[in-house]
Nucleic acid binder design. Structure first.
Length: 411
RNA sequence: GCGCCUGUCGUCAAGCGGUUAAGACCUCGGAUUGUGGUUCCGAUAUGCAUGGGUUCGAAUCCCAUCAGGCGCCCCA
C-alpha cells in the first residue's frame, strides 16, 4: 500500500496550530466589526470568466496559476483571491442599494497553482476587507487603519507600511508612455523578464532584481522619470489627503514609488505591509483602491478599496504553539463512577476526561499529569464519603471536597 | 517554467564503501500494592524515498524517477 499524502503545496492545520488560527479568526470578527464591517462568505469556486475579467487576463494569477476545471460545459475556477468574488456578490445581491459605505470582511481558503516555497502554498488562507461606495481618501485611511489595528491585535507591531499611488488610468497611461520612451534605447540590454514586462506591465520593470537592469534604471534620465510625480492633480490631492490623515493618526508609513501590485484592477492608493522575518515572501498584507472593478463586472459605478492578508504568513509571525490541556482528568478504579463524575462536570462546561482503558492507578495519574490541569481522584474512600480529591497537577496541592463542590474548586 | 539543496523509526538525528543501522524524545508494556511530571526495566527500522547500476561487499559511489525544501518569476 502506498501512502496517500497531502498534495504538493497543501498543509494540514493540526490541533497544535489551532490556538493561533482561532486567535486570528476571533480578532478578525472583533476588530473588523468595530469598524462596522460584516462578514461575508462566498463560494470557493466561481465562473472562470469572473477572474479573467476581474483580476485581469494579463496577470500571472489568471494566466498560469488558476485551478480551472470543466463541468457540464461550464468553465469553473477555484478562487485565487476573493475580491472578485465579493464584488460579484455585491452586484448580484443588489448591495449598491444599501446605505453607502458597505463594509465586508471575509476569511477562507484560496488556490493558486504555483511552485510552493517559504510562505507560499497552493492552498492558503486569506482574511480581507472590502469597503464599497466611498471615493474620498477617508476610506483609504480607514481601511489601512483596520489592517494595522488587526495586526496589532495579534501582537504584530514591528511591521512596515508601504504606500504608493498609481494614479488614475489616464495619468498612469501617460506615465507608462514616458517610461517606455526613455527605456526604449536600452531595451535590448534588459533581461528577458524585463523585456516581456516592457510590453505587458511596464510598471513592474522597476523592481527587477537583475543587477544589469538596475544599472540601466539608475541612469539619470531614467531616474528622473521614475521619481517624477506623474500623477494628475486630482490623484495627487487624494494621495496627499490620505497621507495627512495617516500622519494625524500617527501611523508610520513610507512611500515606495516602486510599489506596484500585480493585479490589474488597482488605481490610486496601493499599499503593502511587510515583515523582515518572513524570508523572500515578506508581504503579510496587500491592498488598494479599485474604483472601476464594480462597473467592469457589470455593476454600478461604485468606488471601492480593500486588502487581503495571508493567514499562514501571519500564523508564522505569531508563532506561539500551545497545546491546550483538558481541565480535569478523573482517576478511578471504577469506570462507571468516573464516567458519571466526568459527565456531571461536562454539563457544567468543564472539559473532562477519564481513563478509558482500565489502567492502574499510577498510570492514570501519569496520564492525567500529561493531559490535564487537575486530577480528580475518586477512590473507594472518596466514593464512600461522597467526596472527590482534587489535585492541582501544576503545584501538587490537593484537597478532598464534597462532590458538589468540585467545580468551584477547579476554577 | 528555470536554478540550487535534501531524502535513515511518529519526531530529532549518528553513520562518510565491510557495524548486529548508534543515541535522544514521543508512544506502548512492566516494576515500585492510592499520587504523576523528576526512579528503574523492557518493546518498537530484516531496513536507510523508489528503481536500476558500479563493487567480493553499498544507507554510504553513479544514473534515473518520485517526494520535500529554498530561490527566480509572481504574489498573501
Amino acid at each position: 500500500m502506498t501512502m496517500i499524502k497531502a498534495q504538493k503545496g497543501t498543509k494540514d492545520i493540526l490541533p497544535v496550530d489551532m490556538p493561533v488560527w482561532h486567535l486570528m479568526e476571533k480578532n478578525a470578527e472583533e476588530i473588523f466589526s468595530r469598524y462596522g464591517a460584516k462578514e461575508i462568505r462566498t463560494p470557493i469556486f466561481e465562473a472562470t470568466e469572473l477572474f479573467a475579467r476581474g483580476v485581469g487576463d494579463t496577470t500571472d494569477i489568471v494566466n498560469k496559476e488558476m485551478y480551472t476545471f470543466e463541468k457540464s460545459e461550464r468553465s469553473l475556477t477555484l478562487r485565487p483571491e476573493n475580491t472578485a468574488g465579493v464584488v460579484r456578490s455585491f452586484i448580484e445581491n443588489g448591495m449598491h442599494r444599501l446605505p453607502m459605505p458597505v463594509k465586508l470582511w471575509y476569511k477562507g481558503p484560496m488556490f493558486r497553482y504555483e511552485r510552493p516555497q517559504a510562505g507560499r502554498q497552493r492552498q492558503f488562507h486569506q482574511v480581507g476587507v472590502e469597503v464599497f461606495g466611498i471615493k474620498q481618501p477617508t476610506a483609504d485611511a480607514e481601511v489601512i487603519l483596520m489592517a494595522v489595528n488587526y495586526l496589532k491585535s495579534l501582537g504584530l507591531n514591528d511591521l512596515s507600511v508601504e504606500l504608493n499611488s498609481l494614479g488614475c488610468p489616464e495619468c498612469r497611461d501617460e506615465f507608462k508612455l514616458h517610461l517606455k520612451a526613455v527605456l526604449r534605447p536600452y531595451l535590448k540590454d534588459l533581461c528577458p523578464d524585463c523585456q516581456t514586462r516592457y510590453e505587458k506591465n511596464p510598471l513592474r520593470l522597476l523592481d527587477c532584481k537583475v543587477p544589469e537592469c538596475q544599472e540601466i534604471f539608475s541612469k539619470p534620465e531614467i531616474q528622473e522619470v521614475i521619481m517624477s510625480d506623474f500623477i494628475c492633480e486630482e490623484c495627487a490631492e487624494h494621495f496627499n489627503e490620505l497621507k495627512k490623515y495617516l500622519d494625524e493618526l500617527k501611523i508610520n508609513y513610507s512611500i515606495n514609488k516602486l510599489l506596484v501590485r500585480g493585479l490589474d484592477y488597482y488605481n490610486r492608493t496601493v499599499f503593502e505591509i511587510k515583515s523582515n522575518n518572513l524570508g523572500s515572501q515578506n508581504a503579510v498584507c496587500g491592498g488598494g483602491r479599485y474604483d472601476s472593478l464594480v462597473r467592469n463586472l457589470g455593476g454600478e459605478d461604485i468606488p471601492a478599496i480593500g486588502f487581503a492578508m495571508g493567514m499562514e504568513r501571519l500564523a508564522y509571525l505569531i508563532g506561539e504553539k500551545d497545546d491546550k490541556k483538558t481541565t480535569a482528568f478523573v482517576v478511578s478504579n471504577s469506570p462507571a463512577e468516573a464516567l458519571k463524575l466526568a459527565e456531571e462536570l461536562r454539563k457544567d462546561g468543564i472539559s473532562c476526561e477519564f481513563d478509558l482503558s482500565n489502567k492502574k492507578f499510577v498510570k492514570q495519574i501519569e496520564k492525567a499529569s500529561k493531559t490535564a490541569k487537575y486530577a480528580l481522584i475518586l477512590g473507594e474512600d472518596e466514593l464512600a464519603a461522597d467526596k472527590v480529591t482534587v489535585k492541582n497537577l501544576e503545584n501538587s496541592e490537593q484537597k478532598t471536597v464534597f462532590r458538589q463542590n468540585v467545580k468551584s474548586e477547579i476554577i
